[in-house]
Design a protein around this nucleic acid. Sequence first.
DNA 1: TTAGGGTTAG
Length: 654
Amino acid sequence: MIILSRISSLKNPFKSTHTSSFIHNFVPTVDPSESLLYFLSLSVETQSLKLTQQCHAQVHRVGLTQHPLIAQKLIFSYSHFKHTDDSQLVFGSILLKSTHLCNNLLNGLAKNQLFSKSFELFRNMFVATSLPLADEFTFSIIFKTVGDFGDFLYGKMVHGRGMKNGFVLDTVVGNSLMTMYSKCGSIYDSLKVFDEMLYRNVSSWNAAIMCCANLNLDKENGFSDNNKLWEFVKGMQNEGLKFDAYTVSILLSLCEGDVKNGNWSKDLGYGRELHCYIVKNWLDLCSGSGSDAHLGCCLIDMYSKSGRVDVGRTVFDRLKYRNVFAWTAMINGYVCCGHYDEALCLFREMQWKDQLEPNKVSLVSVLPACSSFAGLIGGRQIHGFAIRRELNHEVSLCNALIDMYSKCGSLSNASLVFEYECIRKDAISWSSMICGYGLHGKGQDAMVLFDKMLQSGIKPDTVTVVGFLSACCRSGLMNEGIKIYDYVVNNYDIEPTLEMCACMVDMLGRSGQLDRALDFIKRMPVEPGPSIWGALVSASALHENSEMRDLAYKFLIQIEPENSSNYISLSNLYAASKRWDVVAEVRKTMKERGLRKLPGCSWITINSVTHSFLVADKSHPCSGIIYRVLDELGLAMKLYGHNTVSAYMMEVLE
DNA sequence: TTAGGGTTAG
């Protein structure tokens, strides 16, 4: 069961309604401006908007409205609390505006993503006589803003203006400019700035490394792999510059190994080296300062995604300062490795042990654990918590909720989130809902939604297509699926993936077009894997084509000689046709190769008690009634068709 | 007052 404690806000005296006398007692000391500056800094530190507002009132009371430093602090504080109207009000009231003050407001507007207002203020600094001229600080802020906004052409224009004024020669401005181009998708322009810089610091190299890491390296510019990135890493070392925490965190994100493989020596080469580097150079990783949690997160993430969540946990346990990011990284690590119980445990601990409130990402991270382990009750609790915190319209959270509800059997709730809570739907929202319909055997609904998605101008990606094709496949809409495959590949510039091709083979095969399926395999643009041959095996068995089945098996065993499931299903097939000689041969091969089939396991949680079942397991006290219901369902499926019965059961469960 | 690194969804 998920527990979301009702955590009170930070234990902060300034959030109390009874503290208004505090500032009155303090201000009339030697210099009121000093006191006010102190309190304004304190208001940000303690996250108290109320204190900022009290300071503002005092500023008026003691007649310090034109004090430049106080005005700057007020603008900064109000921007910090997202009260940008008040920031602009303070700015407007200052008669003699300095460049510093303008930069302050510009920064505040940009941090609140008020892009058009930021650009307007920037433009006015060049045309309005009432405003001072821009400086290098103005340009580093505006380059960052343009990067966040992602407007390459506007960025080019501002770059030209910066060059004209000579500010681009400044190292910080140059770094900011590099990042702007990187975020706008132009690796070429970013690295050109780097090449032309007069003085480069560690941050300049980091920006170049980040640029290579972030972008899909553009083959036209001659970068087809990570070589360019490692050139920068080496170049930095050749210049005698040491990695800083930023360098290490960027590199750690590139060291994620294959979760399924989880081979320590193969996957963790660079990751472990970087961990050693951190220990050697930042011995205070565990010292309790705020910054160590940052690298701690990167390490936890790297180890978890390399299949070594246990090492990630050791890093986590040794951190003395654990913020919400560190807890979320650890929860997510457990979810990624399928340790859902651990993830849910940690989610509770984070709240009662460290008194930390989960953020949007924590909720998104823990929701898959509900889908797989805690069930609908846990998922509903998370949803309720999100509504109380007004996070339920966040698109990523909505998407995770749609997925959770679908997988927990509540398609109606998934649909409600999709229709009414997910205001700004993205491709993932549409895909999640389409997959939900597919999962519940509602192929027609999936088709309608897919059509709506295309009508809305949202471009489907490979996951959408796979979700849609498997929905068609599950609902017997094979011809419709085959038609759509051709349509999206030809009209949406989608490169067929292995999963898409497997759906196609499945659909062609199930509809009895086995020769066409084999022809598709021969022509498909990706190397056929086990899912392809597996689909052909099933379809050949379904349509009793032993020649095609044997051919598909030959390839399947060739690709996956160590997968016991392949041998078991082969053995079962031959057993069904009483070919005991082949059955014995297959079993012998399995024995020789040391392969054993792990029994399948499923579980269900009812009233906080989890009941698990193995194949043919009759150890449960209610085993008798369970098997009786199963037999009845099997019979009903034969009589009325599995789609009808599944849809009925889903309705009953909801 | 300026740049860069952390956890997220199908």
